[in-house]
Amino acid sequence: MLSTLLDNKYLIRELVARDIRSRYTGSVVGVFWSILNPLIQLVLYTVIFSLVLKERFGDDPSTGRFAEYLFCALLPWMAFQEGVTRSSRTFIENSPLIKKIRFPLEVLPLSVVMSAFFHQFLGTIVFVVVLIFNQTLNLDLFALAFLLYIFQILMIYGLSLLVACLNVFFRDIAQILGVLFMFMFWVTPMVYSKTQAPEPFRWILNLNPLTHMVEAYRFVFLGSPLPSFGGVAYWLAFSVISYYLGCFILNRTRNELVDLI
């Protein structure tokens, strides 16, 4: 699997570039939108949550930082949602490529995931610049972010492969995902802190690997709150298992899949 991806690294680069460029063809400022979008979003959150609603995030006494906590969690979440949702349709949308050209299937979801990650990365740059401006960036653990990226991509890619394959057989998957993400958004502590969740429901949050991913990102960029290390280990293991599960499912269904597309 990994060797197929390495053999096709140039193809993947072209696909990602094609995906990013196609989003902005004909637009005046082009890829600049990928920076403008998160910037506007971040400013909007700051105005609404910190200035208008004066929300506090968890145990943090300052009202000014709510947008930071929220945005820090939203960046990986959006990459997750976009990557998995678009991957679920990628085999069907690219059926001319798959049916008419010999095409390595594993490349398609990866290019979708990497294109989503590209936007996350640009968003993160905006985010970090704002943090530096606010003087709230936690520099001690900053380098660890790249480690988190690797596991995050591994998880998204694995799940993307899974839904991409299953959706060929059961076209309902893409619809089910929409509903699932609606739930996932609220059982992941993004607009609230884990400590704010009532005790009887907290096990649901702990069971959700994304909870620990979000906490890990917050700890790395903002330095608080301290995540549960068992939880983070659980997320890392989940990422690796997702990846292998995705690969396994693709290899099992590959031959029949192309007949059904």
Binding site: R18, R21, S22, T25, G26, P96, L97, K99, K100, I101
Partner: peptide, 11 residues
């Protein structure tokens, strides 16, 4: 098999 199957119309 099909000429131009891999073309992207916008590019």
């Amino acid at each position: 098999l099909e000429l131009g199957a891999g073309f992207h119309p916008e590019f």
